[in-house]
Design a protein around this nucleic acid. Structure first.
Lengths: 242, 242
DNA sequence: CGGTTGTTTGACGCCCTTCAACGAGCGTGG
DNA sequence: CCACGCTCGTTGAAGGGCGTCAAACAACCG
């Protein structure tokens, strides 16, 4: 019993670009099924060549790379609506691993059908490229904060970004955001040690700008955080949904 | 007097994926002209919405973002064959600035024609998406080094990567690579200060692994550098040429 | 010749890493 | 029931990698 693209609640979020009825019908045909994966399991491995592509329907995960020294760099956090596996679909090899942080249910597409996108449905192919461009943009931002911002600014940046994305997906209730990730995950995303990340979060907590416990995050002073991060509080980029 | 795509020497490099004669003809029609830009000049500004797209034919440049504090993060170094302006072409706004480091000559495409790619030439549209996926892959690598590697490993990584790309483009003569960038550029790419980057380069020089002067870079111990960087010495990813 | 840009080196200090320890929550098995 | 192990968050102390400040040198140019 899978969700029809027609009735998919994700499609109605403001974050995602409108799709024509024709496009929706086409995606429905393209959809091979749904996959439920448990928390902590890995969906794709770096270097693998998966025959399937996914878009996250429910749940959250993360993309990461592992270096030779054993260090882990978290590339980004995966929210519902994110498309997963494009690198394998296009280049034949994933550049990072993907793992589920909570239980996730994913829309499954067959990679073999991927090519027909470009031949038969140019709007969808355009959307795919658009998506890749958005990811590149976001990765550029992440690179800039990891490279240039101090720990305090970097943590504030990550939390603000997280909040904006969650807000765009209507995941915020009474100012409380589901936050399934560990401080280690955040540390690995920002390139800081766990200890220092923890102490930096402590500073923001002492200033009563955030509270984060029991898998729930609250930002009590969004403007203050944005000032510390050095970013504008603009809504996230509109993006296509696959 | 512009270069015909037919005779473009870039197309013959191993780095770039083969194109059918049909594709070459189509790209030729798509090409609006050539642009020569002087060293130090800005080609695209962050936030701008350029009506034109480019691929670098000759010369080198760099992509960068500027933060509110005035810091600069270099996103990557631009080599001949790189496609420039995709973000503006797809999302309507550049996420970073682009500037010429040496004099550059660029192939100019009209953005308005961009859409016809997807409608009339699905192979080219596919190549474009492929290109975006490659960039995402490379950015992920960069993020991992900036986030996780020490200064010595990061500098070695950057030099090895630079060497491999230059080699794939036949820019190496007697082990000497043209290196038009300043140490400040490298520092801003890796997220280290100029002083510390300089001292790190000094260490590699003292070990007689590199020499870099007068705009020329030589790597005397590629394997040693790769070991310090913690990377495999694999050839760069094949990529499409626009 | 002065002004500018880029490289190099030394001194000093701090942000961040590492090491270490402790507590809370939570399953598992005695 | 409680002991036990495991994960995760928290805090303190010590040390080092890296940033900042400063100055000098070389190359280039008007």
């Amino acid at each position: 019993m899978t969700t029809d693209c027609e009735n998919c609640s994700l499609r109605r979020k403001d974050l995602f670009a409108q799709m024509s009825a024709d496009e929706v019908r086409y995606m429905q045909r393209f959809k091979a099924g749904e996959l439920v994966i448990d928390a902590g399991k890995t969906l794709l491995m770096e270097g693998s060549n998966s025959p399937q592509l996914f878009t996250a329907l429910r749940g959250m995960g993360l993309r990461y790379k592992t270096l030779e020294g054993g260090q882990r760099q978290v590339i980004n956090f995966i929210f519902p609506g994110d498309f997963i596996g494009m690198q394998a679909g296009l280049m034949g090899e994933m550049g990072h691993s993907v793992e589920a942080t909570t239980q996730m249910t994913l829309c499954v597409f067959d990679r073999a059908e991927f090519w027909t996108f470009f031949r038969d449905h140019p709007e969808r192919a355009f959307a795919l490229t658009w998506l890749a461009a958005v990811e590149e943009h976001l990765l550029g931002d992440a690179l800039a904060t990891v490279g240039q911002r101090t720990a305090l600014a970097a943590v504030a940046w990550a939390l603000v970004r997280f909040h904006m994305r969650a807000t765009a997906l209507d995941m915020v209730q009474d100012g409380a955001i589901p936050m399934p990730y560990s401080q280690q995950d955040l540390a690995d995303a920002l390139g800081f040690s766990l200890v220092h990340t923890n102490k930096t979060l402590g500073k923001l907590r002492d200033r009563q700008m955030i509270s984060w416990h029991d898998g729930t995050l609250q930002l009590h002073d969004l403007k203050g955080l944005a000032r510390i991060a050095g970013v504008e509080l603009s809504p996230p980029l509109e993006r296509p949904l696959m």
